[in-house]
Design a protein around this nucleic acid. Structure first.
Length: 318
DNA sequence: CGCCAGGATCTGA
DNA sequence: TCAGATCATGGC
């Protein structure tokens, strides 16, 4: 919509007031939104057609959008400022402590570690593609892949907080990519997944309509794409459609379930595809567990310690 | 060179 | 149904 001459226009600025305390930096740096990073006293990045810079201002959030951007409300929805995080987290924590009393102390530590960490409401196309490209890849690598994909469309360049960012292309734009461009992305076996996904993905408005479906219907739909298995479909349901009962199990959450809830391999496996044993809002717990386990590994392993052991059976809260 | 990264899929029993 | 092998690529 922005045609060329907006370069001289001013960025859009505003203040958002979250309904409960908002832990800004961790929420955006823990890998929820791949293309966000720390920047100039806050956090900046792109998710889909939304580019924004966020900084804490007391109990409020100071928002900056590129010139010509849509209303501030879109940023508020993305950040989940209206979610009642405190109640949801308390409910999840209480459930888990009640059902796993031997792990209650460890569970409380996980929640305390990420207090104020909201779940983002991410835009569909970039998030779906991001998680398909995340298979057997690091978060940093996924971010670079999404950047490379976005930069194939120079018209989507915007100026944000003094640097260039690229909005993520729409489905219609993605369908114009050539085979040579796909090859140049060096995605390995994920190239086929991406090509077929772009070819078969509904347009943005149809993806929005899936919001009205039951979670299992969405799951059944996305699982029809090659490359979308139980973990990726759970991520889509959690991060795009805001179903905080979805519980993606990756290598970090796998370790976390063993450490914190003392799950066996059998119990971890049973959790994939059926998170009912973890109670309401367990997706929030899952995200906290992901972050907790990942940070814990970094603290334990400054190069002299052992890497996260394959059979992680001993858990010390130290 | 070997192992890991927000797994998914195929295969053989 | 289900553990095990295989799948490309980049980082360290």
């Amino acid at each position: 919509m922005v045609r060329g001459e907006s370069v001289t226009a001013d960025p859009v600025r505003g203040i958002l007031r979250p309904s409960s305390s908002y832990a800004l930096v961790p929420s955006l740096l823990c890998g929820q939104a791949f293309r966000f990073r720390q920047s100039a006293g806050g956090v900046a990045g792109v998710c889909g057609s939304l580019a924004l810079h966020v900084a804490s201002a007391g109990r409020s959030l100071r928002i900056t959008l590129p010139a010509g951007s849509a209303a501030l409300a879109e940023a508020g929805r993305f950040l989940g400022v209206a979610d009642n995080l405190r109640e949801d987290a308390a409910e999840s924590c209480a459930y888990l402590c009640g059902h796993y009393p031997d792990s209650a102390a460890a569970v409380r530590e996980v929640f305390a570690f990420s207090e104020g960490l909201h779940l983002l409401h991410q835009q569909a196309v970039e998030t779906i593609i991001g998680y398909v490209l995340s298979v057997q890849s690091s978060v940093e690598l996924v971010r670079r892949r999404l950047d490379a994909l976005a930069e194939l469309f120079p018209a989507n360049r915007r100026l944000l907080a003094g640097s260039d960012v690229f909005l993520f292309p729409a489905v219609a734009e993605l369908r114009s990519l050539t085979a040579a461009e796909f090859d140049r992305l060096h995605l390995g076996y994920r190239t086929t997944w991406l090509r077929e996904l772009i070819a078969g993905l509904p347009e943005e408005n149809a993806l929005e309509e899936l919001r009205e479906e039951h979670p299992w219907e969405r799951r059944r739909f996305f699982r029809t794409f090659a490359g979308i298995g139980p973990k990726v479909s759970s991520c889509i349901d959690l991060f795009v459609y805001g179903n905080d009962d979805a519980f993606p199990v990756d290598v970090w959450v796998d370790r976390g379930l063993r450490h914190v809830l003392r799950f066996s391999s059998r119990e971890v496996h049973a959790t994939v595809g059926d998170s009912s044993a973890l109670g309401p809002h367990c997706g929030l717990f899952g995200e906290y567990l992901f972050r907790y386990e990942r940070e814990r590994s970094v603290r334990l392993d400054p190069s002299c310690g052992q890497p996260p052991a394959k059979p992680p059976r001993s858990a010390d809260t130290g």
